[in-house]
Amino acid sequence: MTLDTALWFAVTYAQLALALAACLAAVRILIGPRAEDRVLGLDALYVAVMLLFIVTGLRLGTPFLFEAALVIAVAGFVSNVALAKFLMRGEVIE
């Protein structure tokens, strides 16, 4: 096994592992059971997909996917904070 194929396997493995991680996070979003679990799953999903973008960008050799990863990171943070805040405040009024 040459070094090139080893690197190829490493990148492919990383992509598969991160895709699987995203799927597992999606499972947690689907099964819940509480709303907090779903937000937590969404947070993990965002991180896994962002890392997947970076690894894919490495493989394809384009820097553009990096910008997408940055946008995902920012959007993920803002949406999760908003959701968590809603869980806290939405119930107070109820």
């Binding site: 493995y13 699987l20 991680a21 995203a22 993990a44 896994a48 890392l51 690894v55």
Partner: peptide, 8 residues
């Protein structure tokens, strides 16, 4: 990627 997968 292994650590991220383990976390998931």
């Amino acid at each position: 990627s292994t650590l991220t997968l383990l976390g998931a």
